[in-house]
Design a protein around this nucleic acid. Structure first.
Lengths: 162, 162
DNA sequence: GATAATTAATACGCAAGCTAATTATATTCC
DNA sequence: GGAATATAATTAGCTTGCGTATTAATTATC
């Protein structure tokens, strides 16, 4: 399939959806979803973060993070405490119950990655990831670049005039 | 970043999310969302499909497709008619109002792909898409393969016993 | 020191994706 | 022919993600 093919665009979405489906399956026995595990992963990297900090690191809205943490709190994995200095912020910290989850998440991630790269050489897998990283940066630039996209309708009209 | 890095997993999700955000922005002036455009794309390829057929082609549940088509119908882009032979099925067809949307979608997709592959050689872009296609197939196999994943907890316990 | 602007979190609503359960129709198998 | 099975679509409920507006608290400005 040519990479400019319009169907190519859906491959990115498909892969993400399929990976979430698989990871959800792997995590379900432990009462976790993919996104919730993602939040926990942030806290394993650095604990006691603000909700806004977590949202920034995940490139997601504060509202979304708020909901995720609410469910994680209900399941007893994390706790929220109002910051003593700035009473607007709530700091999220891992509870003891969450500690064993870390290794499970790592193991599930490993299995998912194995399934993802089946039949590919380590070199091919690595170069794909490198390119994916570039693509991610490109998209971030496009998103922050205040949408320098030209209106599609305008372009079409212009073409017709030619 | 090493491709076995656990953060690598989030790149797939990030790219998909970012691309949807951008595509939604491009389509918003035309009253369409990314997923709705995806449905229309199926109908441009072949019109008068069953909801189940659309769901199969999109690798999505029939419920999701039902909702998407309901909104597309409300916007006047498609219509649903009960099949004359089998009254259980509803056939979805494009209305005249949807026809001009086709070229707009193509143009938006082109812009999105350009933003995606900025700074990459056509060869790199093509090989990335080839690899992505393999990955997509791998994940489909894993999904349909009735979950041959071993329970992560069991694996961890086994390792501890060693 | 009061007022304005900023910031953190939340409430609310929409769209999308999933599962499970329901309804209506077809098909298959005694 | 009639019961069991299968299929198409829908309903209802959950999680996630986004946008906008609101509330509470802090910081900046005059």
């Amino acid at each position: 399939m040519d990479y400019t093919d319009h169907r190519a665009g859906f491959i990115f979405a498909d892969i993400a959806r399929f990976r979430v489906r698989l990871f959800d399956r792997l995590l379900a026995p432990h009462g976790l979803t993919t996104s919730q595990a993602w939040v926990l992963a942030q806290l394993f990297i650095e604990d006691n973060l603000t909700q806004t900090e977590i949202a920034q690191r995940m490139d997601v809205g504060t509202v979304t993070v708020g909901g995720l943490i609410e469910r994680l709190e209900a399941r007893g994995f994390v706790q929220r405490k109002v910051d003593s200095v700035d009473r607007r912020v709530k700091r999220v910290s891992l509870k003891e119950e969450a500690k064993p989850i870390g290794r499970i998440m790592t193991e599930c991630g490993k299995q998912l990655n194995e399934a993802t790269f089946v039949g590919m050489s380590p070199e091919a897998a690595q170069s794909t990831m490198d390119n994916m990283l570039s693509i991610r940066e490109n998209l971030l630039v496009a998103l922050e670049g205040d949408l320098d996209f030209e209106n599609a309708t305008d372009i079409l009209l212009k073409k017709e005039r030619e």
